[in-house]
Design a protein around this nucleic acid. Structure first.
Lengths: 352, 352
DNA sequence: TTGTAGGCGTTATCAA
DNA sequence: TTGATAACGCCTACAA
């Protein structure tokens, strides 16, 4: 028969026992060479390591995890991967985690509460050592899952007692944006936000803006708020909708920078000028915002830091050392060139 | 003593045997209830499932993987998470994979060949069932690792025989961009590309553009090529550099859309007009490009499809069914408004 | 249709 | 310093 033997087709993965035999030691010793080199005789150690190298040994994470109970893996579940914001957070987390030997497992739920539960279940089942989630609002099933687990969980952006959280004051972000516009003299202010269900960040930003305006005796009724997809196109559509109003708002707040930028582009496409014809303020301060013409006035959110802090806390909690309380990161208004005093309009009520 | 007993602090995770006992069956039966429900007596099945639900049973993925040899996990290693392009690919992959019960494990190497090896090693060790990588160029160590493994690996963007690949003709992308500009009448064409080492996509795009120009008797010497970071800021810097030349190019190709957009913004910041003062062509066709003013002329790369195809092939390869050859996806020029015929310059040699 | 028993690759405990 | 051996939680022939 000329058939190639099966054994040659899929060469069996070399395992610890192979290395041990090759080096003439027991499996236990070989194992120690991998994880606790200090306990070994230098010569033995070198011999085992050499065998491992030559045989191309790769430890089996599954077996290792099964017995040790730890996978050296952290799960992060975000609304979407297709967002500079979350990409940044994940990047920061991965960087921080890799410093401690942890690997990041990422999943996105595309704003579906049910998909989030599934992701949580999968990660828990997969044996992640820690979990990072975005926002405080989630399905009951998800909450139950989280309550039942005993691995550390950290919430980001928005928190909810008693969970550990790395937050940012989203309501204040809306407030800062609104107050800036009021100070510039705006009275008719619109806002473009993402879809509010299952998005406590956007909800808080809107509420914060509204409350701030109310304190100045200004209302922002529903027709001045446009719910759109959290994208450039959403921003453009929102801007188009609001500009159709009569009279149109003299200023718009974008629930995220991307939507504010969409507004900028919609105005440009209409041959109108920002900030002369419309003031625009964003929230997030993504990279691009500083490079636009006009550069976008926005609220800076320390995105990278959120990731770093979340990762640090997770690691600290797992190893049981280091501080690990919740933290609320500072945000601030970044004044650039997309918002100015409103043009005096014949029909408008002016401030002075 | 009033100490709370340890057992209460960390309630032991319920495992299969607990469910089995609770339902009054053997572990084997409980196991079958989870993975092969058809084999069970409906009543028994229901009883086990009920117990599992009530006890909040979550299968231990590690143990399951150890015995079954499969983790239902696919690893994807990309240059960076902070990129619309890769975000899109990953999103598409995740969507496709979830349809088959697979989970996506993501890592980024930030353009470090060594970090890539580490990521590959980690994933292999973690027991992923398949691996997705970007580009065909990598360190020797990485190649060895890949050659030694017997899980399916799919390369994306650029391929290399005999590896399975889902590619796009990057050289042709550069070619299409260059030819479009030549047809418009441009003779002095610059290009802004990413750093060329460990990035075969950018290298190919540059080479393709150069070759196309050469066929028309046009040279693109090094001083007309600016290597920058793959970012908006990089694009701006590259544009600034090239515009300082005397004479400056009449057209610029961006190695990625983001850099082309950076060029647009640099021009705008300088009070110059695109395409009147400079024609700009990108490569990628990201969302934003269609929304700019002027809208960006670019080469469309089917990013989402790359992810979908890669995922499908991986799944097919793992399950051993379905087609699974390499595939080269079509790309095409998308003419919008950022490139036009060059202004006749006194000092320039015009075509006619 | 259900139960028994062996083993997946590694680490940890206990002796030697 | 090293070795034997028993878990880890689950799956899957094989038997009943």
């Amino acid at each position: 028969m000329k058939f190639v033997s099966e054994a040659n087709l899929a060469q069996r993965k070399t395992k610890l026992i192979d290395v041990a035999r090759d080096a003439g030691v027991s499996a236990a010793t070989a194992s120690r060479a991998m994880s606790q080199p200090d306990l070994l005789n230098p010569e033995t150690l070198e011999r085992v390591l050499e065998s491992a190298r030559r045989l191309g040994y790769l430890p089996d994470g599954m077996a290792r995890a099964l017995v040790s109970g730890r996978t050296m893996t952290i799960g992060a579940i975000v609304p979407t991967l297709d967002s500079t914001i979350f990409a940044r957070v994940l990047q920061a987390m991965q960087l921080q985690l890799s410093r401690h030997g942890y690997q990041l497992l990422v999943a996105s739920h595309e704003s579906s509460p049910q998909a989030e539960v599934e992701a949580i279940r999968t990660f828990l089942s997969r044996g992640v050592d820690g979990l990072m989630l975005v926002g405080a609002e989630r399905s009951l099933a998800a909450s139950r899952l989280l309550a039942a687990t005993n691995i550390p969980v950290v919430l980001t952006w928005c928190g909810a007692e008693p969970a550990l959280a790395v937050t940012v004051d989203n309501a204040k972000a809306g407030q800062l944006a609104a107050e800036h516009l009021v100070e510039l003299g705006h009275r008719r202010i619109g806002m473009i936000v993402g879809h509010l269900d299952f998005n406590d960040r956007q909800s808080a930003r809107l509420a914060g803006a509204r409350a701030a305006l109310a304190r100045h005796g200004i209302e922002m009724p529903d027709f001045l708020v446009s719910q759109q997809s959290l994208s450039l196109a959403g921003g453009r559509a929102g801007c188009a909708t609001l500009m159709q109003l009569d009279p149109p708002p003299s200023a718009i707040i974008g629930g995220i920078d991307l939507m504010a930028i969409g507004s900028l582009q919609e105005m440009q496409a209409r041959g109108l000028t920002v900030p002369d014809d419309l003031s625009v303020v964003g929230i997030d301060d993504i990279d691009m915002s500083a490079h636009l013409t006009p550069a976008l006035t926005t609220i800076h959110i320390p995105t990278t830091r959120i990731g770093t802090e979340a990762a640090s806390r997770l690691v600290a909690l797992i190893s049981g050392k280091g501080l690990s309380g919740s933290i609320n990161l500072p945000i601030e208004l970044v004044v650039r060139h997309s918002a100015s005093a409103p043009k005096i309009r014949a029909s408008g009520s002016n401030g002075t």
